[in-house]
Design a protein around this nucleic acid. Structure first.
Lengths: 248, 248
DNA sequence: TACGCTTCCGTACATCGTACGGAAGCGTAC
DNA sequence: GTACGCTTCCGTACGATGTACGGAAGCGTA
C-alpha cells in the first residue's frame, strides 16, 4: 500500500499543538480518544484494519462523527505518529558521552518500531512537526552538539542513524508479520524450492550458494539483533574515526 | 498508504521466472507490456495514479483483461520491482576492492531510487525472489565474500548499507515530491511560523535554535548529496576499521 | 465444421474515504 | 421560559478501487 500523501500542514499543525479552542460542555468524543483508539487498532491488527469505520465502531460512535475532531485520515496518521513518539521520550542521561547517547537513541527508536510496526509506514514521509516530534529532534541533535561537528555533519549523522534504525526495524518487522500471517519459513522454502535448484547452482549464484551453505539456521530475531548491533557499531565507529581525525 | 501486503509466493514466482507456458497464437497483451506500462505510470505520476484501470487504459484494453496475465495487484508490484532492479545491474568491476565495490553499489541503488521513487514504497517488505533481485543479491554479497568477514557479518553489512541507501533516498524523494506537489519551502515556513516562536525559543529548544541559526540555507539536493556521502563514508570507515582489527 | 482452450472484457459488488445536510445538545440573551 | 446560534453527532450517498464471475471472441486442431 502506498501510504497516503502528507497531511495539509495548515490543518494538522493546530491539531498537533492542540491550539484549537474547545467548547465548554461535555463531549463524547475527543482528539485524544480517537488517536488512542486508532493506535490500539493499528497495534493489534495493523494499518490495513485501521479505517475510519473501525475507529468509530471501537468508540461506539458514528463514522462521520470523527470528522468533527479530525479533518481526515492523513491528519489522523500525523497525530498517531506524534503520539507514539511522545510515549517514551526519556531524556538522554546527563553524564554520558555522545556515543552512548546515540546508541541509547538508536535502541530506543528500534524498540518503538517493534512496538508500533505501522510507524514505519507512516514516517516514510517527513513527519509533521508536532510537539513530540520536535522534542525528539531537539534531543537527538543535542547528543551531538558538543562534539565539534559542523551543523551539516550533525544533521547528516542524525539522519544516517535514524535511517539505519528504521531500515533494520523494517526488516525485522516484515519477517515477523509474515510469520504472524501464517507464512512459515517452511512454506517459504517450499514455494521457492522449484527455483532453488537453479538458485543454488554454484555456476549461477556461487556466492549465494556459499552463504547459504555456511549459514547456521538460527533464530531470525537473534539474527536481526546481531545485524542491528553490528551495523550500529560500524556506524558509531565510523563517526568516532571522523571525530578523531577532526580533532587532530 | 500502507502499501499492500506481500504477494502470494506460489502465484508470483512462476510469473517472475516466466516459467508459465504461453500459448502459440498472438496476444494483444503480455506480462511485459503490462509491467512496462505500470512502471511508466508510476514513474510519471506516482503510485497513487497506478490503478488497474489506468494501466488498462494506457494499453487500450479492458481492465479485467489484465487479470488473464497477472493474478492481482500485489503480484504486479512484485513484477515491477524485479523489472527495475534488472535495468542497471552492471557487474562490479573486476579489479576493484570491496570498498569501491560497496560505494558503487550504494550510488547505483540510490540513482535507481531517485529514478523510480515508488520503488521505496514497494520494497518495504522483503521483495519476492525474482531473477533480478536474486542476481543483485548475488552481486552485493560477492563484493564482500573475500574480505574475511563471517557470513553473518556479510549479511549484516549488506543489509546495513542497503538500508542506509533506502533511507537517504527516501528523505530526498519525499522532499522532492513535496516540492513537486507545490509545497514550497516558503509555504512550509509560513505554515509553521505560528509555532516557530515557541520552537525557536532557546529555552524550549536550544539545540534546534542553534542549528537553525547556523544553517546556511543551501540547495536541498546538495544537502542530501552531502548527507549521503557523509553517511556512506562513515559506514565504510566503520567496516574498514572492523576489518583491520579482525586481520590483526 | 465442430470442439476446446485461451484470451479478452462488461457488469457487479465490497470496501474505502469523505461531502453534504440534517438532527440533537448546550449555553446564552431576551 | 423561550428563542437563537454554535457545536457536536451522524445517516445517506458518491466516487474510486480491487477483483469475482460469467460470457464472448479468437485460434489451433481433429
Amino acid at each position: 500500500m502506498a501510504i497516503d500523501h502528507g497531511a495539509d500542514p495548515a490543518r494538522v499543525l493546530p491539531l498537533l499543538w492542540r491550539t484549537s479552542n474547545r467548547t465548554s460542555y461535555g463531549h463524547r468524543l475527543s482528539v485524544e480518544r480517537i488517536v488512542d483508539q486508532a493506535v490500539e487498532i493499528a497495534d493489534a491488527h495493523g494499518l490495513e484494519r485501521l479505517t475510519m469505520r473501525t475507529v468509530a465502531q471501537g468508540l461506539s460512535v458514528g463514522t462521520m462523527s470523527l470528522y468533527t475532531h479530525v479533518p481526515g485520515k492523513p491528519e489522523l496518521y500525523a497525530l498517531m505518529v506524534d503520539h507514539v513518539i511522545g510515549e517514551d521520550l526519556h531524556p538522554v542521561a546527563a553524564n554520558t558521552n555522545w556515543r552512548n547517547a546515540l546508541a541509547d537513541i538508536a535502541r530506543n527508536d528500534r524498540d518503538r518500531y517493534l512496538r508500533h510496526p505501522w510507524l514505519l509506514d507512516l514516517i516514510a514521509f517527513r513527519p509533521a512537526c508536532g510537539p513530540n516530534v520536535t522534542a525528539k529532534y531537539e534531543r537527538d541533535l543535542s547528543a551531538l552538539v558538543d562534539t565539534g561537528l559542523t551543523v551539516a555533519e550533525i544533521n547528516a549523522t542524525v539522519m544516517t542513524l535514524s535511517v539505519f534504525v528504521q531500515g533494520a526495524a523494517r526488516s525485522q518487522v516484515s519477517l515477523r508479520t509474515a510469520h504472524a500471517a501464517g507464512f512459515s519459513d517452511a512454506d517459504w522454502w517450499q514455494a521457492h524450492k522449484p527455483y532453488w535448484s537453479q538458485l543454488l547452482d554454484p555456476e549461477h549464484y556461487p556466492t549465494i550458494r556459499r552463504v547459504f551453505d555456511d549459514a547456521g539456521r538460527s533464530d531470525p530475531d537473534a539474527e536481526h539483533e546481531f545485524s542491528f548491533e553490528f551495523g550500529l557499531t560500524r556506524l558509531l565507529d565510523g563517526i568516532e574515526m571522523h571525530l578523531q581525525l577532526r580533532s587532530q
